Simulated scan of single mutants.
Amino acid sequence: MAKRASVDFVLRPFEGLPGEPDWVAMREVVPSATGTARTTAEHGSRDVVVATALPLGWPALHRADGTLMVALQQNAGSGDASRDLADLLLQAAELPAGTPVTATRLPEPGPRLQDVLDLTVPFEVTVHEGFDWWVGSGIDESEDVRDALDRMNESVIQTERLTSVDAAYRAHMGDKDFLRWAQPHDEQVFLDALARLHARRESGLGDGGSVGRFIGAFRSCGLLVPVWDLDQSVSLEDLDAAVAALGERLDAALAVEGSLDANERRARAGLVARQLTLR
């Protein structure tokens, strides 16, 4: 029996896609959101809705209006999330309109999202308060879908996307608010820049960290996602301004050439110690 070909592991599966950090954020930290995409002419120039989750755990759907939908928040995979999602899109495209893909499979090597999607189409993200968009977007409202919708709406974490920078999301989690900001930069380069700021006590948000305090970072899909513990009383507008100011400081730090000094190296070691890897 011939051995089944396997897909190579890819550390940074969404690299090269428009909005790579938002793909990572939607996969890991945003409960309910959708993003826009389109397949290439070779694959029919089909409109695609990239979703955090779909009803009943469907991995993909060929909607009744012809739109393809694919869910990012899936645990099983081949080791290359881009290949897995492309395979699901292609499966959905072959199904009759109104039919979901109901189970995932481990694909063999083949086209990835970078091959299937038109890379000139911006990835525009809309964050939703709950999952009512399932019905509003043309998904049939069966009893099972309605039950799943009610369950998901009960557990959704209120999340807001900032406008001053890309891929930054505020999450309201009980008596805590957090900012999680997926970074597009090479991990080592970004850590050096953040260490320069941290050594000068400039890694927080607002004057002296009054808006938010940097508490660590996690790594997912090859990108770093720093996290800040926020003052819950701060408005979204003021948070946006504080994040924009931090973004300017980070840009300046990223432009610095040369080695870190001793204080910055100590700061960097502390940053690395507070990292986690999700996927």
Score class of each variant (00 low, 15 high):
Gln74Cys: 00
Ser82Asp: 04
Val70Thr: 08
Gly98Trp: 10
Gln73Ser: 07
Trp133Gly: 02
Thr67Arg: 00
Leu106His: 03
Ala93Phe: 09
Glu108Pro: 00
Val121Asp: 01
Gly130Pro: 04
Gly110Cys: 09
Phe123Glu: 01
Gly110Val: 06
Glu124Ser: 12
Leu68Val: 05
Leu89Gly: 07
Pro96Ala: 14
Gly110Asn: 07
Ala86His: 10
Thr102Tyr: 03
Gln91Arg: 15
Leu113Asp: 11
Gly79Cys: 06
Thr99Asn: 03
Trp134Arg: 03
Ala81Glu: 05
Leu89Ser: 04
Asp115Ala: 15
Leu68Pro: 01
Ala93Ser: 10
Trp134Ile: 02
Asp132Lys: 02
Thr126Asn: 06
Gly136His: 00
Pro107Leu: 08
Ala76Tyr: 13
Leu119Ser: 10
Gly98Val: 12
Leu90Val: 11
Val101Cys: 08
Gln91Glu: 13
Ala103Ile: 00
His128Phe: 07
Leu88Glu: 15
Asp140Gln: 11
Ala93Pro: 09
Asp115Phe: 15
Arg105Gln: 01
Leu89Ile: 13
Leu72His: 09
Arg83Lys: 14
Ala93Val: 01
Ile139Cys: 04
Asp115Asn: 15
Asn75Ile: 08
Gly79Met: 11
Leu106Ala: 09
Phe123Gln: 04
Ala97Phe: 10
Ala97Ser: 12
Gly138Ala: 09
Gln73Phe: 00
Ser78Val: 05
Ala103Cys: 00
Pro111Gly: 06
Gly79Asp: 05
Ala86Leu: 11
Thr99Glu: 14
Val125Leu: 14
Ala76Glu: 15
Trp134Pro: 03
Leu95Asn: 10
Met69Ile: 02
Val70Asp: 06
Pro107Arg: 12
Arg112Trp: 00
Leu113His: 08
Gln114Lys: 01
Thr102Leu: 03
Leu95Ser: 00
Thr99Ala: 13
Val127Trp: 09
Leu68Ile: 14
Ala86Glu: 07
Thr126Gln: 15
Arg105Gly: 00
Asp132Arg: 07
Val101Tyr: 12
Glu94Leu: 10
Thr104Val: 09
Val125Cys: 11
Val135Thr: 03
Arg105His: 14
Val125His: 15
Leu119Tyr: 08
Leu106Asp: 05
Ala97Tyr: 05
Val127Leu: 06
Gly130Cys: 07
Glu129Ser: 02
Pro109Asp: 03
Ala92Gln: 08
Ser78Met: 05
Arg112Thr: 15
Arg112Asp: 04
Thr104Tyr: 04
Asp140Met: 02
Gln73Val: 02
Asp80Gln: 09
Arg105Tyr: 12
Leu88Val: 08
Leu89Asp: 11
Glu129Gly: 01
Gln114Arg: 11
Glu108Ile: 05
Glu94Val: 02
Asp115Gly: 15
Gly138Tyr: 08
Thr126Glu: 11
Leu90Arg: 15
Asp80His: 01
Val101Trp: 13
Asn75Ser: 14
Leu89Ala: 02
Thr99Leu: 04
